[in-house]
Design a binder for these strands. Structure first.
Length: 482
RNA sequence: GCCCCCAUCGUCUAGCGGCCCAGGAUAUCGCCCUUUCAAGGCGGAGGCACGGGUUCGAAUCCCGUUGGGGGCACCA
């Protein structure tokens, strides 16, 4: 039996159920976003559940990082750790007794059975099956053990795991995004639901929790599609109605391989540290596998909530495009307020071991906001203002040596005479100097910029010099190349 | 090997039988602007994987091939 649709009128409940791996993977972040949007769009409930069954790496710290990232993205949960809710606890390690209760019930009712095969034996049999070209799934050896056989295994001191006895029937999964997927009974082998150490596997824990937490929709990665028939059968054995399922296409790297650490950037925390704005990441992620119409690219959070719809989720794996994210981030930076940019850029500079004067940063923001696609980049552009350790890079050094030390000295003398140290006055004097030098503006300013900022790339010259101040500007012009 | 999913510019996508000799965004190239770099403006190049059907008509429907992804664990 395939699952029946949920009764109409029931309010939506969906969830994100990350394993606390120590960071929030962008793929999970996107799944979280889609669930959150779906819940908010329908006025439903968004639940956070931590799937930490038996993992060593499941520490409070790791869970804290995941929650911090979700909050940074603005994905608040209505039920879950720290906020509570009627169906808690929301951490699987605190729900273990529920899984063993269910397992006992299955054991008693014949939906599951004890399996005494050791991991070594299983692996060997899998290998052989594969070699024979047969499906490598469990062969059902312990499914119908006699009392005597069981006693013998027990006497041997063998560990006991519990396996779910899959009904011998085909299963159809109704997916909200993909339609129907059919699975043949023969391909659905019995699987472990309770490990020999008494902890549940994902298949059991997720299914039990989804039922007990009254989830109406399960929106998750496509990698879980093949496990859905198993969960459907567990839920059926539970005597419950299954939720509706929607499997999202996976997020892959530029090489079409699953997005992993090899690609450099998979953790939401990485984007945060690197200077991406949460609204940019949210907007980008929303469009990575979903679209609204032919042309709309920018969506405010409210617009996303208003327009999000599972039927417009794409079916194919989406490659994460860092350049497009950076472009989008630049767009949001250009739209951000001066105060906010001052704050985050100041923070970024501090992170670079500098001691920025926030008022100087504030004055410099208009100079760099169009020149940075990340906050980190803004910090790099303004570095010369907050340290005197400015060593010209290769291109800058070339520009300087081409013009000669005398040229810089002369520029310093001209600037020294500026009475009113404003960009306007500095501009007037520098242009005069450039004209006298019979050089193009480009050629004349290059060495000055190089000496003052240490780079051939910088914010506009006059304003940069104004912000740097007379003394430091003259000092740099006079010491460079000497 | 077996099972499942998928297939439009490099990338993300629009397209759900005629509006498409395929639209947008990004990336890329050129021009303009310009004190560098950006931003911005204008323009260019670039795609329906292939083969069969169905149809008056196919990017759109069906089948196959190829390709990509996922799964087949006492991971989640």
């Amino acid at each position: 039996m395939a699952e029946a649709p949920r009764p109409l009128g029931e309010s939506v409940r969906c969830r994100i159920a990350p394993a606390p791996t120590g960071y929030l993977h962008v793929g999970n972040a996107r799944a979280a976003l889609y669930n959150w949007l779906f819940a908010r769009h329908s006025g439903g409930t968004f639940v956070l559940r931590i799937e930490d069954t038996d993992r060593v790496r499941s520490t409070d710290e790791a869970i804290g990082i995941v929650m911090g990232s979700l909050r940074w993205l603005g994905l608040d949960w209505d039920e879950g750790p720290e906020v509570g809710g009627p169906y808690g606890p929301y951490r699987q390690t605190e729900r273990l007794h529920r899984y063993t209760e269910v397992t006992d019930r299955f054991l008693a009712g014949g939906s599951a059975y004890a399996c005494y095969c050791t991991p070594g034996e299983l692996e060997e049999r899998r290998r052989l099956a594969r070699a024979r070209g047969e499906p490598p799934g469990y062969d059902g050896r312990c499914r119908n053990l006699s009392e005597a056989e069981r006693a013998a295994f027990e006497a041997e001191g063998r560990q006991r795991a519990v396996r779910f006895a899959m009904p011998e029937e085909d299963v159809t999964v109704h997916d909200l995004i993909r339609g129907e997927a059919h699975f043949r009974a023969n391909d659905l082998r019995d699987f472990v639901i309770l490990r020999s150490d008494g902890t549940p596997t994902y298949l059991l824990a997720a299914a039990v929790d989804d039922v007990q937490m009254h989830m109406t929709h399960v929106i998750r990665g496509e990698d879980l599609l093949p496990s859905t028939p198993r969960q459907l059968k567990i839920i059926e054995a539970l005597g419950a109605e299954p939720p509706a399922y929607a499997h999202l296409p996976l997020v892959v790297g530029a090489d079409r391989q699953p997005l992993s650490k090899r690609h450099g950037s998979v953790a939401v925390e990485w984007f945060k540290e690197r200077g991406f704005l949460p609204e940019a990441l949210v907007n980008y992620l929303a469009l990575l596998g979903w679209s609204y119409d032919e042309t709309t690219t920018f969506f405010s959070r409210d617009e996303l909530v208003d327009r999000f719809d599972l039927s417009r989720v794409s079916h194919n794996p989406a490659a994460f495009d860092m350049q497009k994210l950076e472009w989008m981030n630049g767009h949001y930076i250009r739209e951000a307020t001066d105060t906010r940019l001052t704050e985050v850029v100041t923070e970024a500079l501090r992170g670079g071991a500098l001691v920025p004067d926030p008022s100087v940063v504030a004055a410099a923001i208009p100079l760099v906001r169009e020149r940075m696609s990340t906050i980190e980049e803004g910090g790099r552009l303004l570095r010369f203002l907050f340290t005197d350790d400015v060593v010209p890079d290769e291109k800058a050094a070339n520009a300087i040596s081409k013009a000669g030390v005398g040229f810089l000295r002369e520029a310093a003398s001209r600037l020294e005479a500026v009475e009113d140290w404003t960009a306007e006055e500095i501009k007037r004097v520098l242009i005069l100097f450039q004209e006298d030098s019979h050089m193009s503006r480009r050629d004349a300013f290059a060495p000055i910029r190089a000496a003052v900022t240490g780079s051939t790339v910088s914010p506009p010259l006059y304003e940069s010099i104004e912000l740097l101040g007379r003394d430091r500007t003259l000092a740099r012009l006079r010491s460079t190349g000497a």
